[in-house]
Design a protein around this nucleic acid. Structure first.
Length: 256
DNA sequence: ATGGTAGATACTCTA
């Protein structure tokens, strides 16, 4: 079972690239963030043509999440249970081959201390509450997506530069650690202990060229599933393509 | 303290 997560920064702008990557890498499940696309316009047929079905939860211009899967997607949930009707669309969950998949696009937070920052911390607390009240830690479960947080300094190209900044602040890291403590394992870190592994590079100031990246896209699993993890990797090559997303796929493989 | 780029939508907002 191969599961991947990728913030594509617009599914319509990235469709040919996403379909080609999916055909070449053939994940069982691809969790997509920042689709920036209403459900009626989601290019579902493109995925169907290569053997995938999709579950989508989008909105115009911003946010939006989707799951593409080779097998059927059951018990789909769109949004957090305590979301307002017009809430930003940042979570979609479904059960595939008896694995509960929770795909999230955590708010960016803009700047430490801003309203958006407070919204981010509250959203993370609500995600934690969702796990507590609606998920089973003993089940095979994956929480993956764009977390918009680098958990530790080894996930940051220049920790001194980023210290206390958005994506790296203590409160964000603490909120993330609380969610991990619910009973999840960072599957990438099971296989790679060192620094220099990033999943996002800013479009600006030649960040990718200088490898000025952060590891903010994650794939976490409950212990039941994590112990079956045989490999995990970040597919950096997609960032070198023409018109790339600013994020690259994170992939994990599990024994059946 | 600010700029750099990209995407969608409508000339601005978000990241």
């Amino acid at each position: 079972m191969k599961i991947a997560t990728w913030n594509v920064n617009s599914i319509t702008a990235r469709l040919p690239q996403v379909l080609e990557w999916t055909r070449n890498n053939h994940p069982d499940v691809l969790c997509i963030q920042e689709t920036k696309c209403i459900d009626q316009k989601f290019p579902a047929s493109g995925f169907q043509e290569i053997g995938y079905q999709v579950a989508v939860f989008g909105q115009p211009t911003y946010n939006g999440v989707a799951i593409a899967s080779l097998s059927s997607i059951n018990d789909v949930q769109r949004g957090l249970p305590d979301d307002e009707a017009d809430a930003q669309r940042r979570l979609i969950a479904g059960t595939i081959n008896n694995i509960r998949i929770i795909n999230v696009y955590v708010p960016n937070g803009a700047e430490v201390g801003s309203d958006k920052y407070e919204f981010k911390l509250k959203w993370l607390a609500r995600l934690h509450k969702y796990l507590d009240n609606h998920c089973d830690v003993k089940q095979s479960l994956v929480l993956c997506g764009d977390f918009n947080i680098a958990p530790e300094d080894r996930d940051v190209h220049d920790p001194a530069l980023w210290e206390g900044k958005i994506l790296c602040s203590d409160a964000e890291r603490a909120a993330l650690e609380n969610i991990l403590q619910w009973g999840l394992v960072d599957v990438f870190r099971k296989h790679h202990k060192g620094g220099g592994h990033y999943s996002w590079w800013d479009y600006r100031a030649g960040a990718f060229r200088q490898n000025n990246g952060l590891r903010i896209d994650h794939l976490w699993a409950t212990e039941t599933l994590a112990k079956k993890s045989v490999n995990a990797w970040i597919d950096k090559i997609t960032r070198t393509l023409e018109k790339p997303s600013d994020h690259v796929p994170v992939v994990a493989e599990f024994a059946d």
